[in-house]
Design a protein around this nucleic acid. Structure first.
Lengths: 191, 191
DNA sequence: AAGCCAAGTCAACGAGTGACTACTTAACCG
DNA sequence: CGGTTAAGTAGTCACTCGTTGACTTGGCTT
């Protein structure tokens, strides 16, 4: 009824495109690029396979756009958040996998055996940590220390969310967060 | 001439098997399970493709055995090394990728979007860190803290060796090692 | 030298892949 | 209402995949 949000049409190009993107994100995180066919993505989106090519042109472009989604929250964190709150917030975000954030960081990283995904991940990590976080640090090796924070978060996310290591999976986020905070402090608080 | 090391026969089952395993290790780390065909592996090993099935029975069994290789050094480290030397040694090993250690940890982890590889990695990480390292620690949450050390090493290895993050790639191992040591100390040295 | 068996080769299969095209259908506009 | 156009469908193409089984060849034993 509202002109800004017209009621859903039965045929909705934008919604179909979005459904494909979300399905691609989930399957990309679970099985990688080569492990996911365009038919898999279309089936999960409840959509015809040829629409992948109507809306994205190729399998590669679909996955490239899918992999580039969801980094905005990380960007705002590394620019705005107080340094003492940053590690915990990044960790929380990285461990948060659900319908809204399918796959998450651990899924993307384990899809990084594909050249194109690798490029996307490198780009976004460098943007968030080298360009945004590093200048906010004091002391030597700012970029290196910023990337080491990214490495810590990444490692925890992968070992808990993907590999499923016993203790990390069993522990609650609060406990993990305290140790991560401690490690991050020893990295960020330098003379 | 020596009976212990007979000169290479033109037909050598053991050598062929080993060549296939090494080729599989390399390609597994570079492109994952689904991204590598049995024909790729055979070609890199300089061997006929059907021999994959003679010696391993299936593609899956070949990659399972390939992924299980090279963990012995990690096992001896987590049992024998003094705790203060352990983080640096684990890092050195994880960053060491070459002909002898094709792929390395970063390659295996990014291949973990395959169920079977994931199981192998989880198993070996739990063996080295939960069963061997954790009992050597003092203080609370031994298994969790042991796995967090594994996560730190993993994250650094993946971001440097696979993603290719700028600062981590440019930095020399010594500089990275110092920061990793500092972070690990804040994790392992508890009252 | 003959024979045997492991080691290695070859060609083919059925299923599935990315990509593309020609077609049909639904929704909006005058 | 009727027509136009975007949205969605079905089918096809050339190719690669894992896997198999029938075949050949090298090299040791006797």
């Amino acid at each position: 009824m509202d002109t800004a949000t017209p009621r859903a049409r039965r045929r909705d190009a934008a919604a179909t495109r979005e459904a494909l993107l979300m399905a691609a994100r989930t399957l990309l995180s679970e099985h990688g690029v080569e492990g996911t066919s365009t038919r898999d993505v279309a089936a999960r989106a409840g959509v015809n396979q040829a629409l992948v090519y109507r809306y994205f042109g190729s399998k590669e472009k679909l996955f490239a756009e899918a992999a580039d989604r969801g980094w905005d929250s990380a960007d705002t964190m590394t620019t705005d958040l107080p340094l003492k709150d940053l590690p915990r917030a990044l960790l929380e975000r990285a461990l948060n996998v659900g319908a809204e954030h399918p796959g998450g960081l651990s899924g993307l990283v384990t899809a990084a055996n594909d050249d194109m995904i690798r490029a996307v991940v490198r780009e976004r990590i460098e943007r968030a940590f080298d360009e945004q976080l590093a200048p906010r640090l004091s002391g030597p090796d700012r970029a290196l220390r910023a990337e080491l924070l990214a490495a810590l978060i990444t490692g925890v996310a992968v070992l808990r969310g993907k590999v499923g290591a016993k203790a990390l999976t069993a522990a609650d986020r609060e406990a993990i967060g305290e140790y991560v905070d401690r490690m991050a402090a020893s990295l960020l608080d330098l003379g």
